[in-house]
Each structure stands twice: as structure tokens, then as C-alpha cells.
């Protein structure tokens, strides 16, 4: 790095500071013993204790986990199947299907949310956990497909061919050879899907119904009402959980596919 001009390093350092300092400050002040969170008054855990007293927050956490788990399972299954179909088969309409898959990635969340709201109201569906899950799966499938497909394309197909030559049928080859090699890609896609589901506010807020507020919806209303440093505390918890999920997903995607050396 020695050859780079000083001003360039300065700019880069400033950008990293800009990206990370606000979150570090947020975390630090979740332990601040002052209701008007701006000056440092000493260390406390009372804002975390305060969180446990809020039934709506605890309830919304369970809703988020429920929605996250169900939508992740469905989108991972469907996304993985899509990836296998696209990467392993020749068929007509392939280019069309690929562009179809990119539409959910570029469509603004607000557009996704209101168009689903129109559909659900038209079909007279009750807005609630069911509609939130449908919406989350709809935007997650494409992302899972992209992640799994890139893993598939980096995989060594010789192992599968060897299994077939040695007499395993296609089902056995798939479950005993393909899936174990693909597993890190599937897990990594699933973790990303869960993170996106767990974080989503915009789409969820449009298709949610009474009694099915997810965590981001309750946090949003806390931010709106500006209630005390409890927001810092819940933000810290969300940050720690997502950082852990992303770290795990990052490790899995760096993990090389099993290949003979």
C-alpha cells in the first residue's frame, strides 16, 4: 500500500469512517445512562431491560422469526430448483426466464409492495402473516437463484459423471454427490434470504395486517415517536444478529466446493 498517494488513503479512510462510525456511535450510546441520549452519563444496561418490558416488541420479534423461517424455506427450495434448472438444462425461453429473474432484483421495494397490495385486496385475501410470507418469497427467490447458480457453475461435474459411470442412478447421484457439494451455496442463499426478510420494512409495511407487525415495523414506529435510547438498544441487537448471519454466509460462500486435488 506504500505506493499509493497520501490523499487517496485519506479519502478511503474518511469513507470507512463515514460507513462505520455512525453505527459504532449508535451502539455505544445504547449503553448510555441518560434519557436524552446525546451526552455521555455513564454505563447502563437499563435500555436493554426496558426492551423486555415491551410486549409488542417481543411479539413482533416472534412474527419476524416466523415469517423469516417460513419464507426462507420456501424461497430457498424454489430458488435452488430454479438454479439447477437454469444451470443444468438447455431449453427454449432461457433468455426470457433469465430476464424474468432480474426483474425482482431491480424493481423498487415500494413498487413491489403496492402492486402486491393491489393483488391481495383484489383477491380479498386477509392481510397478515400469510401475505407477508408470499411477498418475501416473491422478492427472495431471485436472490437465492443467483447465489446458488454461481456456486453450481463453479462446481466440478466430473464427480457426478464418475458416480453415473460407477452405476448410481440420477437420483442417487443428485442426493449423494450434487447436493453435498452445493450445500454451502444453498445455506449461503438461505442466510441472505433470511436477512432480507428479517430486515424488510417497506414491502412488509404495505402488506401487513392487524396483529402481524414484524420487528422492523415496530422499530419504525419507535423511530417515528423518537422514544429514548431503547431504539439504540434494539438497533444494537439487530446489528449483532445480522452481522453474525452475514459473517456466516460470507464464510460459506468462500468455502471452496469439494473438488478432487
Amino acid at each position: 500500500m506504500g505506493k499509493l498517494p497520501k490523499w487517496l488513503l485519506g479519502v478511503a479512510a474518511a469513507v470507512y469512517l463515514f460507513l462505520h462510525a455512525p453505527l459504532l456511535v449508535l451502539v455505544a450510546f445504547s449503553f448510555n445512562d441518560s434519557k436524552f441520549s446525546a451526552g455521555w452519563e455513564g454505563f447502563t444496561l437499563r435500555w436493554y431491560e426496558r426492551l423486555l418490558e415491551r410486549d409488542d416488541l417481543v411479539h413482533s420479534l416472534w412474527v419476524s422469526v416466523e415469517v423469516g423461517v417460513i419464507s426462507t424455506l420456501i424461497s430457498t427450495l424454489l430458488g435452488t430448483m430454479l438454479a439447477l434448472g437454469i444451470a443444468r438444462h438447455r431449453f427454449s425461453g432461457r433468455t426470457f426466464l433469465e430476464s424474468l429473474l432480474y426483474v425482482p432484483i431491480v424493481t423498487p421495494e415500494i413498487v413491489v409492495g403496492i402492486s402486491l397490495l393491489i393483488l391481495f385486496v383484489f383477491l380479498k385475501m386477509t392481510l397478515g402473516i400469510g401475505t407477508i410470507v408470499i411477498a418475501h418469497v416473491a422478492f427472495n427467490i431471485s436472490f437465492v437463484t443467483v447465489v446458488v447458480r454461481s456456486r453450481l457453475e463453479g462446481m466440478d461435474r466430473n464427480l457426478e459423471e464418475a458416480a453415473l459411470i460407477l452405476g448410481a442412478d440420477e437420483f442417487t447421484t443428485f442426493w449423494k454427490v450434487t447436493v453435498p457439494q452445493l450445500w454451502p451455496g444453498i445455506l449461503s442463499g438461505a442466510l441472505l434470504a433470511f436477512t432480507m426478510s428479517f430486515d424488510d420494512y417497506v414491502i412488509t409495511s404495505l402488506v401487513t395486517g392487524p396483529g402481524s407487525s414484524t420487528l422492523p415495523i415496530v422499530v419504525y414506529s419507535m423511530v417515528r415517536k423518537n422514544v429514548e435510547p431503547s431504539i439504540n438498544a434494539i438497533s444494537t441487537i439487530i446489528l449483532v444478529v445480522t452481522a453474525a448471519l452475514i459473517w456466516a454466509s460470507d464464510r460459506l460462500s468462500q468455502d471452496k466446493p469439494l473438488t478432487p486435488h
Binding site: 453505527l23 450510546f29 441472505l192 423511530v223 439487530i238 446489528l239 452475514i246
Partner: peptide, 13 residues
């Protein structure tokens, strides 16, 4: 990949 809501709150803070 960090919660967009939390990051926006960090700006408000």
C-alpha cells in the same frame, strides 16, 4: 447487508 432502517436511524441519531 445491515438493516437499512437501523442505518437510517443512525443518521437521525
Amino acid at each position: 447487508w445491515t438493516s437499512f432502517l437501523v442505518r437510517t436511524f443512525a443518521m437521525i441519531f
